[in-house]
């Protein structure tokens, strides 16, 4: 506990980032309790109602409360963002580590497959995957995670290639350490910094990819709200007439991305012993 306080004092921006994330996660978990209204109940009289005491963030075309939809939407958006980023980065890191450290045929195959995947637009690939798996939350996460893998794998591989040449890796071989253990103990921890930077950078784009998928009817099925869908459904039509439909989901996405970046930066420094004093 005292360690947490110590780091909190040293990285105040990281604390802000962590608080933002905690608030969002708690909101998502307790959505049913926190949300003032039901997110799915329509009310024709309140169609496109501006923010008021009843509808704190206004209402959408069908008269559903934007705030409540955002609170419930946090569930899907955060699940997709955190889930896809973690799965994509984790898989990518494992492949990149193996590919860079083992080299040879394995490396050759992994790299060619990664290149083919990277030549397809992210959205197209996600589309193909959801179309074949069918729309559901899990499939959406998988569909968004897989296109992230080649990116992460290539960055980590490049990093591993340079780490592999360092004397401490050679020294570990010289004492008879096994390859797998060297990769896990000496190489992997030193790739954490680029991994964290990459993962936080991708978090925002996963939320937006989910929005695009949902917009095309391949994301999480209607009528469950997500921030991305709320944004993409209203961005074109209501930007002028009912800007609250665009501003609030946009703000939520930006805040989550901002919070992750602050937290990620601090985490990267905390995990690096060289920053210790």
């Amino acid at each position: 506990m005292s360690e947490v306080l110590y780091y909190a004092r040293r990285y105040p921006l990281g604390v802000i980032g962590a608080l933002i994330l905690i608030v969002f996660v708690l909101t998502a978990v307790f959505a049913g309790v926190v949300a003032p209204l039901d997110p799915l109940t329509t009310n024709p009289r309140a169609s496109l109602a501006p923010p008021s005491s009843t509808y704190l963030m206004g209402a959408d075309m069908m008269g559903r409360d934007v705030l409540s939809r955002m609170i419930h939407g946090a569930r899907i958006s955060l699940a997709v963002a955190l889930g896809a980023t973690c799965i994509g980065s984790g898989l990518g890191a494992m492949l990149g580590l193996a590919s860079g450290y083992l080299g040879g045929w394995f490396d050759l195959i992994v790299q060619r497959v990664a290149e083919i995947m990277q030549s397809l637009p992210l959205l197209v690939m996600a589309l193909v995957i959801t179309a074949s798996l069918g729309p559901s939350l899990t499939n959406t996460i998988i569909a968004i995670a897989i296109p992230l893998v080649p990116n992460v794998a290539r960055v980590i591989r490049a990093n591993v290639l340079s780490l592999r040449e360092l004397n401490y890796v050679e020294a570990a071989r010289a004492v008879g350490m096994s390859q797998a253990r060297i990769a896990l103990v000496h190489v992997f921890p030193n790739t954490l910094a680029p991994l964290i930077v990459l993962a936080t950078a991708q978090l925002g784009s996963t939320i937006l990819t989910e929005a695009s998928l949902s917009f095309l009817g391949l994301g999480v099925p209607e009528p469950y709200p997500s921030w991305g869908r709320m944004l993409s459904e209203s961005a074109a039509e209501y930007m002028r007439s009912a800007p609250w439909l665009v501003i609030f989901p946009g703000l939520a996405i930006s805040l989550v991305v901002f919070g992750t970046n602050l937290f990620g930066d601090a985490l990267r420094d905390i995990l690096d012993p060289r920053q210790g004093d």
Partner: peptide
């Protein structure tokens, strides 16, 4: 073996 570079021969973590 003992290496030349005292920086890259020890794992910083």
């Amino acid at each position: 073996i003992v290496f030349q570079d005292p920086y890259s021969s020890l794992n910083p973590r």
